[in-house]
Design a protein around this nucleic acid. Sequence first.
DNA 1: CATTCCGCCTGGGTGC
DNA 2: TGCACCCAGGCGGAAT
Length: 277
Amino acid sequence: MPELPEVQTTVDDLLNLGIIGRAVKRVTVAWPAVTGSISGQNLTSLLRTKKFAHIRRRGKYILFQFDNGRQSLLHLRMSGRLKFVPLHTPVDKHEHLRILLDNDMELRLHDPRKFGRFTADETVKAKLARLGIDPLSKAFTRRALAELLLNRRRQLKPLLLDQSVIAGLGNICADESLWLAGLHPQRLSASLKGEEINGLRSGILRFLKSSIARGGTSLGNGEQNFVSVSSKAGGNQTRLNVYGRAGRPCRRCRQLIQRIVVAQRGTYYCPRCQRKR
DNA sequence: CATTCCGCCTGGGTGC
DNA sequence: TGCACCCAGGCGGAAT
Ligand SMILES: [Zn+2]
């Protein structure tokens, strides 16, 4: 579930927990697929005594940088979230990766669907290199977005979800941004006019800033619902205009919101405000 | 180059 | 209660 705002919220939380400057004591892997079958012992020998120097968001990845220069990446995928608890806290059945620090606090990946991934090897650089522009960076100008759109002939929504084009946007952000901009999710990227491109950029930024300011979007109360490291649910769900609102009236024109499938993802839009043309 | 389908997993919701 | 079915915030690989 986590998209850019939820990952950013998670990183912001991590930076308030006193992890920076602490060393790794042990890594425990409870579900091998999380690490691509790299054992906890291997990861422990790689990271033991190394201190956390930086924690940053890169697209939807959380990047951990250690004081020896080693980098590792954590991706929360669909249902991952982090917990930070004392060493002897009973291990939940959904906690598949645990990183013990030298203050006996443990960072745990809680991930019911087991899609989350952690890597600390040489593939990190390649993964980072594949990421497109960060939508919150200064480089994400109207001109930069125009170039990304006009040089491709793709449907808008799959393009927005392509992490090698723009890094961090997810299914909710794509639908909400397209509604804000009044653009059909299947419009061809190369067909956009200047003003439409500017509107799309504004929509993306407006959604991201709103969601981050509210601690992300938390859609329910289940195991797979997003909460930050401090166990707080986000508040952006009440601001959604189309996502999950099929059959309900558009807040702008009262036309009923429709759900279609685009690029194998549920896609919500207003047939009146967002014409294919 | 773009699109489509599948696999990876568990859990929540709905309808019978 | 039970069961069948559909859906889910992501992504990588294969086929077309
Ligand atoms: Zn509308």
